[in-house]
Simulated assay, not measured.
Amino acid sequence: MNICVFCASSLHIDKKYIELAGQVGAELAKRGHTLVSGGATVSCMGAVTSAARAGGGRTIGVIPQVLVDIEVADEGSDELIVTTDMRERKGLMDARSDAFLVLPGGIGTLEELFEIWTARVLGIHDRPLVVLDPWGLYGPLKQLMSHLYDEGFTRAEVFDAISWTTTVDEAFAHLESRSQPVRPSIAELGESTR
C-alpha cells in the first residue's frame, strides 16, 4: 500500500515523537509499503522518511514551493513532487495514498486529519484512517468530538470513520486490515455519547 503519514515538522518537540516517527518509518518499510509524506527532512517528517528509506522502503514526498526553502525538501525521495501551494500538496498526497496514518502533530497535522476524516464521513472515500497516539496528545480532541456529537453537530459516522491506536503494531494492523474502525468506548472518550 501507499501509506500517507501526517506528522509534525516542528523542531521544538520532545524527542519521543521523533523516535515514534522513526519506528513508523522502519515498520512501514519492513512491511513492504510505500511512504507518502510532506516531503521535508525536518522533525518527525524527516524521521519517518529517513527510517523508511533506511529499511529499503520507497518514499514519495510532496512539498509546496513555499516550504522548500523553509523546511528543506527531501531530495533523497524516490519521487519528490513540488507543488504550487498547500491545497495542491494535500490533493496529491490524498490521490497517491491507499491509507492514512496520523502521528502527533500541530495545526498542520490537524488540518490534514480533519480533511481526510471529513471526506471519509461524507463517503468520498473509504480508505483506512488511523491515528497513532501513544501518549494521549489527542485525548482532548476525542472528547471534543464526543461533545460535538452530544450537541448534535456530528453524526455517529464520525466515530466509525477513524481508528485510534496506541502502538505501532496496532496502527499497522488497522491500516492493513481495511476493516471498519471500532467506535471508541465511553471510557476512552472521557464523556458519554448517544
Rank of each mutant, 00 (worst) to 15 (best):
T154D: 07
D160M: 07
M1D: 14
R53G: 02
T59C: 11
T34R: 03
L67C: 04
H125I: 08
A161C: 06
A187K: 14
V72D: 04
R87V: 12
L113Q: 00
A99R: 02
E75L: 14
G105Q: 07
R96A: 15
E111F: 02
T154V: 14
F6I: 08
M86G: 03
V158P: 00
G25V: 09
I60C: 06
S77E: 07
D126Y: 07
G46Y: 08
F172P: 01
I107F: 13
V68Y: 05
Y17Q: 06
C44N: 09
P104D: 05
A173L: 12
H33G: 04
P181H: 10
L80W: 00
L67R: 03
T34E: 08
S37Y: 08
A47G: 09
G136M: 11
V66Q: 03
L113E: 02
S185A: 12
I13W: 05
D150E: 15
A54K: 13
I13K: 08
L148A: 14
A161E: 00
V158M: 12
N2T: 11
A95R: 11
V82S: 05
Y17W: 13
E79V: 13
I13S: 05
P104V: 10
E191Q: 13
C44D: 04
V66M: 10
L144F: 15
V168L: 08
G39F: 02
P128V: 06
G152C: 13
